[in-house]
Amino acid sequence: MKTIVLAGATSASGLAVTRALITAGMRVVATGRSADRLQPLADAGARTDVADATSLDDMIALAERLASDGLTVDAVVPLVGGWRGGGGLAGQSDEDFAALLPALDAVRATSRAFDGALRASDAGRFAIVSSTAVARPLAGGANYAAVKAASEAWTRAVAQGFAKTARDAGEPLRAASVVFRAKALDAESLAPRIVGLWDADAVELNDRVIDLE
């Protein structure tokens, strides 16, 4: 049974992905900062853990707890998001930029904390949800597009790290890092894409940017 960590999963998307993964026979570990907000995920069958997806310390501690329980982590998907924008370039405030940065923080913290676990898995997967705004940024969404672009760059660096580790060890590539881009995130379209992360070999999947329709 594959174990999937959904970090920052207390959103409609987190619940939809959780239900889809459990229906597919996978184990879900869902994190959030509020036990109350995690309850619907627990009701859906997920193992829940109160932990901050943007905190490297929290994510390392979670990785260590799962390892001590004998669980091999097969995928990590940070789902911290949000949008702020409008007002043209002049309206791109420092406050809005700071409010958007946790999405990047979560990508960095989760990928670093679980890097070893994903490389040790028979088919490790790291995936983020980005935006089509990266390809066509608008002045009124410059803060948002910049954070998403940075998240994509980090995720592609994770992909290069997976490939280099396999190459240096003379082993086949088993782990893959993927970017999903959405114009407007639809939880029901994201869920099957996460479930389908193992439909392709890591060599085909690693470092791909996939548009969600």
Rank of each mutant, 00 (worst) to 15 (best):
V28P: 10
S55L: 13
L41S: 09
S189T: 08
L104D: 06
A98R: 02
V5R: 04
R174F: 03
G87H: 11
G45H: 02
V107K: 03
E204P: 12
F114A: 00
G170E: 13
T3E: 09
A113G: 04
L62H: 02
P137H: 03
A163T: 08
M26D: 15
G170L: 05
A135C: 06
A67H: 01
G81D: 05
A169F: 13
L104C: 06
A117F: 09
R125F: 07
D199W: 01
P102I: 06
D211H: 01
T31L: 05
R156M: 15
A153H: 14
T31M: 02
I4Y: 11
A98F: 05
A42I: 08
D122T: 13
S11L: 04
E171L: 10
D43S: 04
D57S: 09
D52K: 09
G161P: 12
I60W: 08
R84H: 09
S189D: 11
L118E: 14
A113S: 13
P40Q: 02
L56V: 08
R65C: 00
I22W: 00
R33L: 10
Y144R: 00
D49L: 12
A35V: 14
V195A: 03
S13W: 12
R156W: 07
A142N: 06
R125I: 02
G32T: 04
E171P: 08
T132P: 06
A149E: 01
D57E: 07
A113F: 11
F162G: 00
A51Q: 03
G91H: 10
G25Q: 03
W83K: 01
R125P: 08
Y144Q: 00
A142V: 14
L6I: 07
A106V: 03
S11C: 02
P172N: 10
R167E: 15
G85K: 00
A109Y: 08
R112W: 02
D201R: 12
I60K: 15
G87D: 06
L118D: 13
G82L: 14
G141M: 14
D96Y: 05
A163L: 03
T155P: 05
L185D: 01
